[in-house]
Write a protein that binds this DNA or RNA. Structure first.
Lengths: 354, 354
DNA sequence: ATGAAAGCGCTAACAT
DNA sequence: ATGTTAGCGCTTTCAT
């Protein structure tokens, strides 16, 4: 069983039939005389033959593989998307070819271009702004994009980021918060619409938003961002983070700074990643239905692959939902007094060293 | 730009040369006369030609793709492995073909078998016991396995699970714990050695271990397991979980049950997933160096792919490391009275069951 | 330095 | 029901 794999010709010879017959047999394309069928079965088992998918693909023009490009496999949001997409793919006998574009920085485009050649279709999550997506269209492969493209006829799925942000801000305002900060991630495609949603909500209450930026959409970045926001002269009483990861990091650092959560500051994020629930205080977040997004994207893609339909620009919107947990709390009227048990001072600047 | 992609023949025609020349040009195999080179360049750009990797693979027998089979893409442990593996792969111009075997239940084997045909080599994480891995060897593809195989000549990397478990138990014993429970996951390949490690450590202190089993290696399963363990007649004062996910779920549920962590019960896990750090109390865990494992596995595999070396049974052991955080605490002398809140409780989560 | 031709392993007409 | 044959798009001797 060492050297080169057995080919269709070996089987044909062993069974005393032609390669065409073997091919048809392997694909279950038709029935055969009992004799032939038996010999075929025997030969295949004997030789342990499995047809070469590459050769098959060359002819059929199908790889039965779907490319999925995500920004960071360590972000549970994407991981959920992949899980959902994979579930559907499996049902239709497709395999996922995964590319983590963040790992390679600005090679995003070239990675996806080369991915395109090895798959029947792609699901892509991009960091590029909408207007620099022409090349994606030019690939001329069925694609489903996360986040609507205004400019190009790309099938897409997503949740309304403006609305989600508005809802979250609304919740915070209703809870009596007055000084809101946003710890965003400018390089994302969604950052702007989230800012717009929050701002617009705040404006209708005569409030304004203090915008900060994290260097990455990760917990570590959230930690770094915390002190600059919370230890200034006029700290916010609630902060919305670009995503749950940043929020989790922010909360950890805030605790380290001596702040009490959520009494001293309410914190919320986006994505509803699994671990927000297990943090303490459990994280309030906007559920963007990641897993469903993955399923939906894959369903659409597969449908298109089957029907060979035109590229449409159909955009499907999933409903965002607010998940209130423990990290956001009603702001009491007087911001002055906290409670007596330990150090009553809410000024955290004291032990900010570490 | 609609229909079938441009082929090497189109380019040859456009440049007025033979396909062989185009092929050599594309592969940078040699230099050409300035004229030809210029025309080639022109033609390729004009037509937007990219050579078809499938056709190429058929001839060269190489796909430049590496298969990675993991048990669950939602488990950060595996996600870290993939991240590490991907980093190395990228450096060597390989692409990852990912398969999440848990998603498909018992199809693990057939999924991996079909994966094997599309890749140059594989990195696999399996749930099968060591003695039912013969088929993996028979695939006759370069493979790196996570977790040593005693029986087969499979290259592998891992951390010493026995040692890791022993270390963790040791820590707990040193902290004065007496009644230890283990919430394991029996279907894992590593469960037994962890039990052995813990037991063996406890025995040398005259202690015994109460073993429970979770239905899945997930946070949800950890939640379910909690009450059965903690609300019995003789609850443990420390519990070691099969992994961090289970531990995280366990802690959440314990809090919900009204227990105070870590005063009422110390909790620890394995893997050192990123979110243990952001939980509160932060989770004590054994760092198994997931990301490093991924890097190492990929490095080994690629080396083998290059050298076409024999399948060796080299096993590389990574060092486990204990990460003590807040979820394990020293047990005070009297196990009777736990409620004396005299020690400055830094954790206000007493009645957090919102 | 460049080209002709023989396949890689398979499928898809088109015979028989 | 089974076989013949012509490629899929490319690389690779081997000529020239």
């Amino acid at each position: 069983m060492k050297k080169s794999a057995t080919t269709i010709r070996d089987v044909a010879a062993a069974a005393g039939v032609s390669v065409a017959t073997v091919s048809k047999y392997m694909n279950g394309a038709q029935r055969f005389s009992a004799t032939v069928e038996a010999r075929l079965k025997e030969a295949v088992e004997q030789l342990g033959y499995r047809s070469n998918p590459l050769a098959r693909s060359m002819i059929t023009g199908q790889t039965r593989t779907i490319g999925v490009a995500i920004l960071d496999i360590r972000n549970p949001h994407f991981t959920n998307i992949v899980k959902g997409a994979n579930r559907i793919a499996l049902q239709h006998d497709y395999t996922l070819l995964l590319v983590d574009t963040e790992e390679s920085g600005e090679r995003e485009r070239s990675l996806i271009e080369s991915l395109a050649q090895r798959v029947d279709g792609m699901i892509v999550s991009s960091r590029m702004p909408d207007d620099s997506l022409q090349w994606l269209v030019d690939l001329d492969k069925p694609v489903v994009l996360f986040g609507r493209s205004e400019r190009f006829p790309l099938t897409s799925v997503g949740t309304d980021g403006y609305l989600a942000a508005y809802m979250l801000a609304s919740h915070l305002v209703n809870m009596g918060h007055q000084r809101l900060a946003y710890l965003g991630f400018a390089r994302s495609r969604w950052n702007d619409e989230r800012i717009r949603g929050i701002t617009s909500c705040l404006q209708s209450s005569g409030l304004s938003l203090e915008v900060h930026d994290a260097p990455a959409p990760s917990a570590a970045a959230g930690e770094r961002g915390c002190s600059a926001i919370m230890l200034g002269p006029n700290p916010p009483d609630a902060v919305i983070c670009y995503n749950d990861l940043i929020a989790l990091g922010f909360m950890k650092e805030a605790r380290g700074l001596g702040l009490r959560l959520p009494q001293d500051v309410s914190v919320a994020g986006f994505d509803n990643v699994p671990y927000g629930e297990y943090a303490s205080p459990a994280l309030t977040t906007m559920d963007l239905q990641s897993e469903k997004m993955g399923e939906l994207a894959m369903t659409k893609l597969i449908k298109r692959l089957g029907g060979m339909g035109e590229p449409d620009s159909e955009y499907t919107n999933l409903e965002p939902r607010l998940i209130v947990r423990e990290s956001t709390i009603r702001r009491t009227a007087s911001p002055v007094q906290a409670d007596a048990d330990s150090n009553g001072s809410r000024n955290p600047a004291v032990n900010a060293a570490s």
